[in-house]
Simulated scan of single mutants.
Amino acid sequence: MKVFLWGIFICLGTLTIAQAQITQNATRQLRIYEDDDFFNVWGRGTDRGYSNGTAIGYVYMKKKKSTFLDKWIFPKAGPSAINVFEWQLMQVMITPNQIADTSFHPNDFYYAGALFATHGLTSYNPVKKYAFHSELVFGVLGPWAGAEQTQRLFHRLIHYQEPEGWGNQVPNAPLLNYYFSFEAMLWNPVKSLEITREIGIHAGTMMTSLGASLYGRYGLINPYFGGTDLDAATRRKFQLYIFARPQFAINLFNALLQGGIFRSTDTNFEELTDQQTSYMRRFTIGMDYGVGIGIGRTTICYTQQTATAWMSGTGKHSVGNITLLIPLSKATYFP
């Protein structure tokens, strides 16, 4: 399995690209997103902790004024803002270190899976160089999410060991979350270097946390927050750059690590909780880094996401991410 996956990783790794790239010159885009802890630039892939996350999304701009949720819960960054909306469907899974063992490991992660949709808005202010990102998340946690079936199917396809401990997963629960962040330019001494700062908050039945980060990138780039002149803002048809994002988080609740809002009503999970010796870390720090390429309106991104232990005793963890943005429209739209 690892030889097979490493071959895929090398092919995709040659086309890597940045996160949070503005879609100012493509009104409709398809986004394909894959997290996997086997993806690792240092060749130290694993199959534990946050093991996999797969998503497909639709990113778009619109001429019509927003109504209902888009109007009331997604703030815009001023009257001259560039507003990029999105819909996304995502499945994630978390597993302990020994997936071939049917027994419960009290000093490790629970098995957990979530299936959810997100709807959000990233609103850029190209004049004052700041952005709001707001997002509504709704879905399910537990067996309803189908993570067990997904992992079993994939492991059979690549002839890898069967995951046998899904009988110990967190119970079913609804997920409803809201996320909001503010990002602003911190330092932009030359066109090839940008550093931004960001603070964000998650609240709801999926997770509640507060985080802050810096994001820096260097290379052949278009302006991070876009521009009032479309031609100037998209002057580079080829982009190539490296980036890094140091960050920290204060974690108050995470349903994938602790169980959802109905965990106390599940007798089997209560027994597992009584045995559990590992606990969620309240403070985590991490570093995301990678390299990006943009060719016209197509971008592809590889990010290595490294963080301190989410659960006590499980050690630091690293997950690779590949994100591909494919334009679906030829026409550009700039409000």
Rank of each mutant, 00 (worst) to 15 (best):
L240Q: 14
Y241L: 11
I242E: 03
I242P: 00
I242W: 09
A244R: 07
R245D: 04
Q247V: 10
Q247C: 06
Q247P: 01
F248M: 15
F248A: 13
A249D: 09
A249S: 13
I250M: 13
I250K: 12
I250C: 08
N251E: 06
L252K: 09
L252S: 12
F253E: 01
N254C: 04
L257Y: 06
L257G: 00
L257N: 04
Q258T: 04
G259L: 01
I261S: 01
I261W: 00
R263H: 03
S264H: 10
S264G: 01
T265V: 11
D266Y: 05
T267H: 05
T267M: 08
T267D: 07
N268H: 14
N268K: 14
F269E: 00
F269W: 04
F269D: 00
F269C: 02
F269N: 00
E270G: 06
E270Q: 14
E270K: 06
L272C: 01
T273Q: 09
T273I: 10
D274N: 08
Q276L: 06
S278M: 02
S278E: 00
R281L: 08
R282C: 04
R282I: 08
R282K: 14
F283E: 07
F283Y: 12
F283C: 07
I285Q: 14
G286R: 04
G286P: 02
V291G: 06
G292D: 08
G292F: 07
G292I: 09
G294L: 13
I295P: 03
T298R: 10
T298Y: 13
T299A: 15
T299N: 14
T299I: 14
I300Q: 10
C301T: 15
C301H: 13
Y302Q: 09
Y302C: 06
T303Q: 13
T303W: 06
Q305S: 10
Q305R: 14
T306K: 06
A307D: 12
A309K: 07
W310P: 04
W310A: 13
W310D: 11
M311L: 08
S312K: 05
T314N: 02
K316V: 12
H317D: 05
H317V: 07
H317Q: 14
H317I: 12
H317R: 09
S318Y: 04
V319M: 09
G320S: 05
G320E: 04
N321H: 13
I322K: 08
I322W: 14
T323N: 11
T323W: 07
L324T: 11
L324S: 11
L325W: 12
I326T: 01
